[in-house]
Write a protein that binds this DNA or RNA. Structure first.
Lengths: 180, 180
DNA sequence: CATGTTTGTAAGTGTGCACTCACAAACAAG
DNA sequence: CTTGTTTGTGAGTGCACACTTACAAACATG
């Protein structure tokens, strides 16, 4: 016994978020996740109930990390007005998704919401993040909505590579968005 | 000869947008598109250069329809202030994506932007739509950015099925969004 | 009618991948 | 040391699917 199963699961989930983020659920073979985690494909299937179970668990891990980052960001807010706290949360989120894995995984998860288990995992993730944002920042519905709207805009900017496009329309879409 | 190849291509592209929208590029067999279009799989491969060529062509058709709808919506605007024109465009877009196919196809396309040809097609689509919105509405960069941010929010609302969720956080995210 | 072109398909072919199983080594407990 | 449990893998199995090929029927042109 080199390691406990629970520790392996954590390793595998980190690898899974990274690997699924690039090509998505259907285009990513479990072999790729196993290789990234440094174990055999067969053992991944013992640790998780099939490829779908692995993906759903990875989604949970992804939203956990996002929620933790936003929570930590709120602690570092300059003041306690909704605007200041939302700004601090946005900054923490921007920092977190600098490596792109968490952002791209969210996009991939949204793309396979025709699988009910995935849709439920996405809802659970946003439930956790949105309720925290609203209650912690004491923000209005409209402010929360705006917070997530511009978060979703980041998804487009990154997937389409708009920060590399010098044309005016792309500059308009990326203006003021923190370093993605 | 029942039909010309060009007419068939149009039929196939409409079917492709619909079918790819549900399960995405990698999870959709070309057989499914062929069946939806009412022709054989082999003929689809003669009409398009492989599955990727079909998907990229479908992306072009998708953004064509979106651009046309927004253009037509702008014509029906109540006044000629940026706000009124943007509002009319938003309404036309909301109407167009009521059937979900065009919205879900965009999500699927964004999910496979690791394929360079798809990324370029997505950029081309948004280039066309964004430049039109900006020039036709004479809107500021910030207004254009907001327009697309809330458009992207619609993607989340629909894929996660948030309009079915009665909890407060979901109501905040969906508030005021026109009937998706 | 003969010849050529375009539309259309049935029947493969090869490969990649989800998932399984039989088996082995490390550790624990008595 | 023996017996049992957990960690771990190599070697399959079967199926789905992208793409091809050989062939046929519809139409055009002389």
């Amino acid at each position: 016994m080199r390691s406990t199963a629970e520790a392996r699961r954590v390793t595998v989930l980190n690898a899974a978020v990274s690997v699924f983020a690039r090509a998505g659920f259907h285009a990513t073979p479990v072999t790729a996740v196993a290789a990234a985690a440094g174990i055999s494909e067969a053992y991944v299937f013992r640790l998780f109930s099939g490829k779908l179970g692995l993906f759903v668990a990875a989604a949970g891990a992804c939203f956990d990390r996002i929620a933790d980052a936003i929570e930590a960001g709120a602690e570092r807010a300059g003041g306690d007005s909704p605007e200041e706290i939302l700004d601090a949360m946005g900054g923490a989120y921007a920092e977190l998704i600098a490596d792109r894995d968490l952002l791209l995984f969210q996009v991939q998860a949204q793309a396979v919401t025709d699988i009910p288990e995935v849709a439920e995992a996405v809802r659970a993730g946003y439930r956790r993040v949105a309720t925290f944002v609203q209650s912690r920042a004491r923000a209005s519905d409209a402010q929360v909505q705006q917070f997530f709207a511009y978060g979703q805009l980041c998804h487009l900017i990154v997937t389409a590579g708009l920060e590399q496009v010098p044309e005016p329309w792309a500059r308009a879409l990326t203006a003021g968005i923190r370093h993605p």
